[in-house]
């Protein structure tokens, strides 16, 4: 075991998988040697990648077989195109078929613009795949802490997972900061105000409101340990789960619906000094969050 900390944020998709699974346990499906590239990017004279920006396969975590998928945020911002999406859809259908848990390392800006229609339907197919697998008793654990964050359709897929593990860098949202600003103006959303973006969409805020379940340091080993723990939780998605989620999300609007900034919400949660949150180190934050935060638990 190496003592050197490896940043999840800086790591690529394959490095993240290597850190997550037991040594030499990973086998990729439709790997880069197959050169299963996007058939659409050439229309725009754009470069392709042999794995279309996602690695899928099987491995073991702590000896337990799992399916693993990792998006590559450095290729087209991890955006979901036809082939990329189909690889994840196939993996989720297999998970349901053989009752095996799935770990998804998200790193995506959402639907790939150049193949928008194919990507949009792929997101819908993936969400259906996640939900049908979960209803059959499979756990689908999402990990978010990469460069591209988890935006657009990626945010919707994440919202279907059983457990979400995030680091501070793990931004989750539907519309990206630049798109809100372009459409609604800088008064509504200043995409260049980084601290505003991070406290509105970042991992700390999502953890505090119950949008994410486990907060970890930006460290591949921390992600792995949290994944192991998440895979030990009882799997469940049924009418009771969604009734509980309905109540949880209604309560959030009642409780925080008038807040205009994340710090207002943190204050309402009972945190004395909300402005200290952004600079708080991960372990200190996780302890504080445990005391004050909203939880999803069996309501996701």
């Amino acid at each position: 075991m190496s003592n050197t900390r490896q940043s999840w944020y800086e790591a690529g998709a394959r490095e993240r998988i290597a850190a997550l699974v037991d040594p030499a346990s990973f086998a990729e499906f439709i790997g880069p040697e197959r050169r299963e590239i996007s058939p659409h990017l050439s229309i725009f004279d754009l470069p392709t990648q042999f794995d279309d920006g996602i690695v899928v396969g099987c491995g073991a975590i702590g000896g337990t077989p799992v399916f693993v998928a990792a998006q590559e945020g450095r290729f087209m911002g991890g955006a979901v195109g036809e082939v990329h999406g189909a690889k994840l859809t196939g993996l989720l259908r297999a998970a349901k078929a053989v009752a095996r848990d799935v770990v998804i390392a998200f790193d995506t800006g959402g639907v790939r613009l150049q193949e928008a229609n194919a990507g949009e339907i792929a997101i819908a197919e993936i969400m259906r795949g996640v939900v049908e697998a979960r209803m059959a008793g499979v756990r689908v654990v999402g990990l978010i802490g990469g460069r591209a964050g988890c935006y657009g359709g990626g945010g919707l897929i994440a919202g279907c997972c059983s457990t979400l593990i995030v680091s501070e860098q793990g931004r989750i949202s539907v519309t990206g900061p630049e798109v809100i600003e372009t459409n609604k103006g800088v008064e509504e959303f200043d995409s260049r105000d980084r601290s505003f973006v991070w406290r509105t969409m970042g991992g700390k805020h999502r953890t505090l409101i119950g949008g994410a379940d486990v907060f970890v340091e930006d460290d591949t080993m921390a992600f792995r340990d949290a994944t192991r723990a998440a895979l030990a939780r009882a799997p469940k998605l049924d009418g009771n789960t969604l009734a509980a989620e309905q109540a949880r999300l209604e309560r959030r609007i009642t409780r925080f619906g008038e807040a205009s900034d994340a710090t207002d919400i943190w204050q309402l949660l009972g945190i004395d000094d909300p402005w200290a949150i952004p600079d708080m180190p991960a372990t200190g934050f996780a302890t504080l969050a445990d005391t004050y935060r909203e939880r999803a638990d069996d309501a996701r």
């Binding site: 939900v131 049908e132 519309t175 949008g211 049924d238």
Partner: peptide
């Protein structure tokens, strides 16, 4: 909007989709 994203729109949209699938 800022408010919708602040409160976690991704969860609300995913929840609607999950409800339809259920």
């Amino acid at each position: 909007s800022r408010r919708d994203e602040l409160l976690g729109l991704s969860e609300y949209l995913a929840h609607l989709a999950k409800s339809l699938l259920l």
